[in-house]
Structure formats: structure tokens, C-alpha cells
């Protein structure tokens, strides 16, 4: 992944910056230029809540190359407090403790790295609360 491609997503990945449709209130994460609900092109800055609940989840036992050292790891679809859904790893958790509806909060974690010499890529992961 090029550095620029990583860098331009920093506001979303580090700070959960989103856009809120000025017309209908739809929250776009990541930001969008057009509201998928009402077609409005006006958005206000919005920051997602960092707590939520698990909608569904899985434990990845066979991972892509970048994540092969981390298996088994848990991934879930998380519905944050503002009803926005994201895909995130569920870190530090025994799969037996993960339940649909379980409460989580987001933490800042290392997500990937480009080998031993490349850039380290950070972002959000969920942890059980």
C-alpha cells in the first residue's frame, strides 16, 4: 500500500471523522460527497462515538498475508452509538466471550505494517467492555 493511500485516511482511522448530512442527518463514514439517503451534497463534520455493540462477528483462522501472523483474530461488524456500522477487529478477546449485542469500545491499535522496514499503519480496533 502506498504511503499516500494510508496517509489520506488518517482522519477517519485515527479520529473517526465522518460527515453528517445537513439535510437528513445521515452519517457517512467515511465521508461522502453525496448523501445516499437524500441526495444532498451538504455535510457537516461529525465525529463518531467510540462505543457500540457487536452486530455479527467471526474468528479468522486463515488470514491474508498481512495478517497471517495474527491468526486467529476476531473481526466484527460494530454498530456504534450513533448507529453507524463499521468493520473492526475485536482485540484481546477469547472468541467464547464475544456475543452478538455485546458491548465494545474502540481503541487505537496497530493494524498492519509494511514488513520490517515499511510504514506502520494504525487504526481502530474494538475491545470488549
Amino acid at each position: 500500500m502506498s504511503v499516500a493511500r494510508y496517509w489520506r485516511e488518517i482522519p477517519r482511522r485515527y479520529r473517526l471523522e465522518a460527515g453528517k448530512c445537513s439535510n437528513c442527518g445521515y452519517i457517512a463514514f467515511p465521508h461522502r460527497l453525496v448523501c445516499p439517503e437524500c441526495g444532498s451534497r451538504k455535510f457537516e463534520d461529525y465525529r463518531l462515538k467510540d462505543t457500540g455493540k457487536i452486530v455479527s462477528f467471526t474468528t479468522i483462522e486463515v488470514g491474508p498475508t498481512e495478517f497471517s501472523d495474527q491468526v486467529p483474530y476476531n473481526v466484527g461488524i460494530i454498530e456504534l452509538g450513533d448507529e453507524v456500522r463499521i468493520t473492526a477487529q475485536i482485540a484481546d478477546a477469547d472468541p467464547k466471550d464475544i456475543k452478538i449485542g455485546g458491548k465494545v469500545k474502540l481503541e487505537f491499535r496497530k493494524i498492519q505494517q509494511d514488513g520490517h522496514a515499511g510504514v506502520i499503519k494504525y487504526g481502530y480496533k474494538a475491545v470488549l467492555v
Partner: peptide, 16 residues
């Protein structure tokens, strides 16, 4: 530290 934690990630959480 977990495999996804380093000085930076822990410092972000401590600072939050």
C-alpha cells in the same frame, strides 16, 4: 504488549 500494540498506540490510549 499485544501484537498490535506499541509505545504509540498505548500512549494514544493513555492520553485519551
Amino acid at each position: 504488549p499485544g501484537p498490535d500494540q506499541d509505545t504509540i498506540s498505548m500512549s494514544v490510549e493513555a492520553t485519551k
